[in-house]
């Protein structure tokens, strides 16, 4: 069943450049993505490229100076900033990037219980995540970084959510520990929960996700099953995904030229075109999301390659 569907999302911030001129900075544009129940979808992109904004946009947490266009549906229902609230904490859970999201002056047990939770479930979750029993009486500053992260995860699981949106849930952990930490995500997904995992760590995504969405310059260029990134690399549809996988140290470690365009000076057409070896005149046109070989891709040449 389809849980979350994002169609042609655009998020822009109004900012001041030096001085007094105001302008609109488009951080996310033409972003389409869906999450089904029972699967982990990983959004992979470099840090600072606006991935966190995606989570905030879906959850209606964007700051005031932003605006949003496009359509977001949850279980077929169209949702916006206000109507998403009724799902939050019960149907949809959010695991934020920073442990600063814990209330510093509330005991963690109470925070994890939240509004809808029960003491028994909180104890059960703490036990399951290896948090000592006295943790519930501690304040966040008394917990170590690792414990605080687990507290965040347990509070997300409190309401037995159908959809979890996790923004970099394992920062600073090496791959082995991160995969270990995400083992529970796998179990949850196998039990039917849909998980949107936002991360900069492609190895982590390869290790845990079912589908991977490649995030580039504010948009998703390709969504494909994880096998395409690991075993059948020739099946990858977008030249950027191919280049990304090829540049990994465990593969060829070979970079292509150029850099991601800065959000302030985007151009029309395919944003990867200036770095692409398949570039031609067609790339300057608007490129729609297409279904190719069981995945989705935004590239006019995907079908012929």
């Amino acid at each position: 069943m389809e849980l979350l569907n994002i169609k042609e999302l655009l998020v822009a911030f109004s900012m001041y450049k030096k001085g007094f001129r105001k302008y609109e900075l488009e951080v996310i544009h033409q972003l389409s993505l869906n999450v089904n129940s029972g699967e982990i979808v990983a959004v992979v992109g470099s840090s600072g490229s606006g991935k966190s904004i995606l989570a905030e946009a879906v959850l209606g947490l964007l700051p005031k100076n932003s605006h949003m266009h496009g359509e977001i549906t949850y279980k077929g229902q169209k949702v916006d900033k206000k109507s998403i609230r009724k799902y939050m904490g019960t149907d949809i859970a959010y695991i934020p990037q920073s442990i600063d999201h814990l209330d510093p002056i509330m005991k963690v047990g109470k925070q994890v219980m939240g509004v809808h939770g029960s003491k028994e479930r909180q104890r059960k979750l703490f036990k399951q995540y290896g948090l000592p029993e006295d943790t519930e009486k501690k304040y966040p500053f008394q917990c170590s970084g690792g414990m605080a992260r687990r507290v965040l995860v347990t509070s997300a699981l409190m309401g037995k959510p159908d959809l979890i949106i996790a923004d970099e849930p394992t920062p600073g952990l090496d791959l082995k520990m991160a995969l270990e930490a995400l083992k529970d995500f796998r179990e949850l997904a196998d039990a039917g929960t849909g998980i949107l995992l936002i991360t900069h760590d492609i190895d982590l995504a390869l290790g845990v996700a079912d589908r991977i969405a490649v995030f580039y310059a504010g948009s998703v260029l390709e969504v494909a099953p994880v096998e395409d990134f690991v075993k059948h690399k020739d099946r990858l549809r977008h030249p950027y995904s191919q280049a990304l996988i090829n540049a990994l140290p465990q593969n060829n470690f070979e970079p292509i030229r150029g850099t991601q365009p800065y959000a302030g000076d985007l151009f029309s057409g395919c944003l990867f075109a200036p770095r692409c070896h398949m570039r031609d005149d067609k790339c300057a046109c608007d490129v729609p999301m297409m279904d190719v070989r069981g995945g989705k891709v935004r590239c006019v040449h995907a079908a012929d390659g």
Partner: peptide, 13 residues
């Protein structure tokens, strides 16, 4: 660590 794989490879090269 905070960069994408392509930039990582560029910088190391």
């Amino acid at each position: 660590t905070m960069l994408d794989a392509i930039t990582q490879a560029q910088i190391w090269h």
